[in-house]
């Protein structure tokens, strides 16, 4: 024989777990280079506004008129003291092209090591 149900149904218990992950906001929030896709959610003008507000005079925007994936490259000016712009851009764009499509904004961290070997007369 089945026992009669005596307990009343109660409201479901609702709880909230809060997990907090704190870290320092990176200034600037972008890294060394940013490649802006042609159909990305932000375009070069928006990037310029952001960069100028957060890190004035530290970045340069290069518009790419004929590239099939990227519309612009934003790069840290200090990198250009280490490498000429054309050489740096051609490498970064070529590598970015391998992994990105026109809807993406890709950020790149660049480490440049200059190797110098000099000989002096004794």
């Amino acid at each position: 024989m089945l026992s009669k149900e005596t307990s009343r149904s109660t409201e479901p218990l609702r709880k909230a777990d809060i997990n907090i992950k704190l870290s320092e906001f990176e200034i600037p929030p972008m890294q060394d280079i940013m490649l802006v896709g042609k159909k990305a959610p932000i375009g070069p003008e928006a990037v310029r506004q952001m960069v100028d507000a957060v890190s004035p005079d530290q970045y340069e925007i290069v518009r790419l008129n004929d590239h099939e994936v990227f519309e612009a490259v934003v790069l840290k000016k200090s990198l250009l003291k280490l490498l000429p712009k054309e050489k740096l851009l051609s490498v970064v764009i070529e590598e970015g092209n391998r992994i990105a499509n026109e809807n993406m904004v890709v950020k790149a961290q660049i480490n440049i090591t200059i190797q110098v070997s000099r000989t002096v007369d004794l």
Binding site: K39, P41, I42, G43, E45, A46, E71, N103
Partner: peptide
């Protein structure tokens, strides 16, 4: 264009 973009872009 992506709707998030600025008119300038």
């Amino acid at each position: 264009s992506h709707p998030n973009r600025l008119v300038a872009d």
